Structures are given as structure tokens and as C-alpha cells.
Amino acid sequence: DIIVVALYDYEAIHHEDLSFQKGDQMVVLEESGEWWKARSLATRKEGYIPSNYVARVDS
């Protein structure tokens, strides 16, 4: 799995977006363009995230 960590807070604009806080970790489910589908490890919610707001966690 690709794990990313939030670099900034993000408040969902559309209902399919995923809100998150700086430091939150998410599993990337699908990478396509600038918006990635991800699942929050904390809340288990899924939605689209702006890929420029996150960084990959080296395992």
C-alpha cells in the first residue's frame, strides 16, 4: 500500500472529497492526475485528496 502523510489541513469542497488535518496518514487507493482517492487511517473514510497536499511515507 502507498501511505501518505498530510502536509497541510484540507477542508473538503465537494461531497466526494476527504477532509484531513496536517499529520494525518492515508492509504492511496487510486492515483489519477492531481486528485487521488484515499482512505484515512484514523477515520477509515474514503474520498478524493489533492495530491500536492500530501507526501509519501517511506516504509
Score class of each variant (00 low, 15 high):
Ile3Phe: 08
Ser19Val: 03
Arg39Val: 10
Val4Lys: 01
Phe20Tyr: 01
Asp9Trp: 03
Asn52Tyr: 10
Lys22Met: 08
Arg44Trp: 14
Met26His: 01
His14Trp: 10
Gly47Val: 02
Trp35Leu: 07
Asp58Leu: 11
Tyr48Ile: 07
Ile13Thr: 11
Val4His: 05
Val27Ser: 06
Ala55Lys: 13
Leu18Arg: 00
Met26Pro: 00
Tyr53Gly: 06
Trp35Pro: 07
Glu11Lys: 12
Tyr8Gly: 04
Ser19His: 04
Asp24Gln: 07
Arg44Thr: 10
Ala12Pro: 07
Ile13Gln: 13
His14Phe: 08
Arg39Pro: 01
Asn52Glu: 10
Asp9Pro: 08
Pro50Ala: 03
His14Glu: 07
Val5Asn: 03
Asp17Thr: 08
Val54Tyr: 02
Leu7Asn: 03
Ala38Trp: 02
Ser19Cys: 06
Ile2Ala: 08
Met26Glu: 00
Val54His: 01
Gly47Ile: 01
Ser19Ile: 02
Tyr10Pro: 00
Ser59Met: 13
Met26Leu: 13
Ile49Ala: 01
Glu34Thr: 14
Gly23Ile: 00
Ala6Leu: 01
Gly47Thr: 00
His14Asn: 11
Lys37Leu: 15
Asp17Ala: 11
Ile13Tyr: 09
Ala12His: 02
Val5Lys: 05
Glu30Val: 10
Ile13Ser: 10
Met26Val: 01
Ala6Tyr: 01
Ser19Met: 04
Gln25Asp: 03
Ile2Lys: 12
Asp24Arg: 01
Phe20Gly: 01
Lys45Val: 08
Ala38Glu: 02
Ser19Arg: 05
Ala6Arg: 00
Ala42Pro: 05
Glu31Cys: 15
Ala55Tyr: 09
Trp35Ser: 06
Gln21Cys: 14
Asn52Cys: 14
Tyr10Gln: 02
Ser32His: 14
Glu31Asp: 15
Asp1Thr: 13
Gly47Leu: 01
Ala12Cys: 04
Ile3Asp: 02
Tyr53Arg: 09
Lys22Phe: 06
Val57Phe: 10
Lys45Gly: 07
Asp17Ser: 09
Phe20Ile: 03
Ser59Ala: 13
Leu18Asn: 01
Asp1Arg: 11
Met26Thr: 00
Ile2Val: 13
Lys37Gln: 07
Val54Thr: 04
Arg44Ala: 13
Ile3Ala: 04
Ser32Met: 13
Glu31Pro: 09
Asp24Asn: 04
Phe20Lys: 00
Val54Phe: 13
Ala42Trp: 06
Val27Cys: 10
Ser19Gly: 08
Ala12Tyr: 02
Tyr53Asn: 04
Asp1Lys: 11
Pro50Met: 07
Val27Asp: 03
His15Ser: 14
Asp58Ala: 11
Val4Gln: 01
Ala38Leu: 04
Glu31Asn: 15
Met26Trp: 02
Arg39Ser: 05
Gln21Thr: 11
Ile13Val: 13
Gly33Trp: 04
Glu11His: 12
Ile3Ser: 03
Ser59Asn: 14
Arg44Ile: 07
Phe20Glu: 00
Ala55Pro: 02
Lys45Gln: 13
Asp58Asn: 13
Tyr8Cys: 15
Pro50Phe: 06
Ser51Leu: 06
Ser32Phe: 13
Glu46Lys: 05
Tyr53Val: 05
Tyr53Gln: 07
Lys45Ser: 09
Glu16Ser: 12
Arg56Pro: 10
Asn52Phe: 10
Ser51Val: 08
Leu41Arg: 05
Ala12Arg: 04
Glu11Thr: 13
Thr43Tyr: 04
Asp24Ile: 02
Ile2Ser: 09
Ile2Tyr: 15
Glu31Met: 15
Ser32Cys: 15
Asp58Phe: 09
His15Asp: 15
Val5Gly: 02
Ala38Asn: 01
Thr43Pro: 02
Ala55Leu: 09
Leu41Asp: 04
Trp35Cys: 09
Ile13Pro: 07
Lys37Cys: 12
Tyr53Lys: 09
Gln25Ala: 09
Tyr8Val: 08
Gly47Gln: 00
Asp58His: 12
Tyr8Gln: 10
Asp1Tyr: 14
Ala6Met: 04
Glu46Gly: 03
Ala55Asn: 07
Gln25Gly: 04
His14Lys: 10
Ser32Gln: 12
Asn52Ala: 14
Ser59Lys: 12
Trp36Ile: 12
Leu41Pro: 04
Ile49His: 01
Gly23Trp: 05
Ser32Val: 12
Ser19Lys: 04
Asp24Pro: 00
Ser59Trp: 12
Glu30Met: 10
Gly47Asn: 00
Leu41Phe: 07
Ala6Asp: 00
Ile49Glu: 01
Ala42Phe: 07
Leu7Lys: 06
Ile13Asn: 09
His15Met: 13
Gln21Met: 11
Lys22Gly: 04
Leu18Cys: 02
Lys37Thr: 05
His15Cys: 13
Ser19Tyr: 04
Tyr53Phe: 11
His14Arg: 13
Val27Ile: 14
Val4Pro: 00
Ile2Met: 13
Ser32Pro: 06
Val5Arg: 06
Gln21Pro: 02
Lys45Glu: 13
Arg56Ile: 12
Glu34Phe: 15
Tyr48Phe: 12
Ile2Asn: 11
Tyr48Met: 13
Ile3His: 06
Ile13Asp: 08
Leu29Asp: 03
Gly23Ser: 03
Glu46Thr: 12
Ser40Thr: 07
Arg44Pro: 05
Ile13Glu: 11
